[in-house]
């Protein structure tokens, strides 16, 4: 059973937890994720491994409250056990020593999953430029950890409350305009729409860009096909073929449509939970 060792609230809706999971910590590689069920009647939700410690035997998850399951998870406390916790899942990021610079773009909650990849890339001797963005300064997470894991960091907020004003893809285009030749690889992780526009920006400069997709999943082991995404005109299972794919080839519109397929039911579950638990 996976015990919550530590819990922190980083903003209104963003939480971080360290989960006791020795074997997972031992096997975890950058780019991989876990699936957990908060409590017995719960559903299986995938979350990226934001960090892990082999020595201390924990895995860090960073999540945003968006519905019933993440709300329920956020209300669990240190010392409590999760009903189920399985991982690591998915293909690890393909990291190596790249020539020139590697650009890591994290948007919103997507900053958490770029952390382990940036950390590994830097360890391997890469020059890592991280571009991290959020709606507003309050929602900007993990800045310190990202600084540690990068060579340079550029911060952007939609409202200009911190760093540059504007979206991360604008920052990317600016960077590529001045030094495209020096950039050999880009990662972008965040909401699908952000990844879509970043992929378009990278495309303008013919730069390879990797995105990490977050479709709805059930088992996470290639058994059900819930996580189907179209990449390069072919159907892939994001949980086992991904979650990382070539951003130039992903059908983001289909991904967004598929993410919304249970909206009404999810809303119902959330309202029922709130009224039962007396949460506003």
């Amino acid at each position: 059973m996976a015990k919550i060792l530590k819990k922190e609230q980083w903003s209104d809706t963003i939480f971080s937890m360290l989960i006791e999971a020795k074997d997972v910590a031992k096997a975890a590689k950058p780019g991989q994720f876990i699936i957990l069920i908060p409590k017995e009647h719960g559903e299986r939700i995938p979350l990226t491994i934001a960090d892990s410690s082999l020595n201390e035997g924990w895995v860090q998850i960073v999540f945003q409250v968006v519905g019933k399951s993440t709300l329920e998870l956020s209300r669990m406390n240190k010392g409590e056990e999760l009903f189920s916790f399985v991982g690591p899942l998915g293909m690890p990021s393909e990291v190596e020593k790249f020539p020139g610079k590697v650009v890591m773009i994290g948007g919103g909650i997507g900053i958490a999953p770029i952390h382990p990849i940036a950390k590994k890339l830097k360890e391997m001797g890469n020059h890592v430029v991280s571009i991290i963005g959020a709606k507003t300064a309050d929602l900007l997470i993990m800045e310190d950890k990202i600084r540690e894991a990068s060579t340079e960091v550029i911060v952007a907020t939609d409202d200009g409350s911190k760093g540059k004003k504007g979206f991360v893809n604008a920052v990317l285009e600016e960077l590529l305009t001045t030094e495209a030749d020096n950039v050999s690889k880009i990662w972008a992780i965040g909401p699908p729409i952000m990844m879509k526009v970043c992929a378009m920006s990278a495309g303008k400069f013919k730069k390879p860009i990797i995105v990490s997709l977050n479709p709805i999943m059930v088992d996470g082991t290639g058994m059900c096909g819930a996580c189907r995404v179209t990449v390069g005109g072919k159907t892939k299972f994001a949980c086992v073929d991904g979650p990382e794919f070539d951003g130039a080839l992903v059908d983001f519109d289909e991904l967004m449509a598929r993410q919304g397929q249970y909206k009404e039911l999810e809303q119902k579950a959330l309202e029922l939970y709130k009224s039962k638990e007396g949460v506003a």
């Binding site: 009647h41 719960g42 559903e43 299986r44 019933k68 399951s69 059930v218 088992d219 058994m223 059900c224 397929q261 249970y262 039911l265 999810e266 119902k268 579950a269 029922l272």
Partner: peptide, 19 residues
């Protein structure tokens, strides 16, 4: 799997939805 393992037939008592 949604219906059996995750018991979507008993939604919203169980959290997994099925349309």
């Amino acid at each position: 799997t949604r219906s059996n393992l995750m018991r979507a037939f008993d939604f919203p008592n169980y959290d997994t939805p099925l349309n």
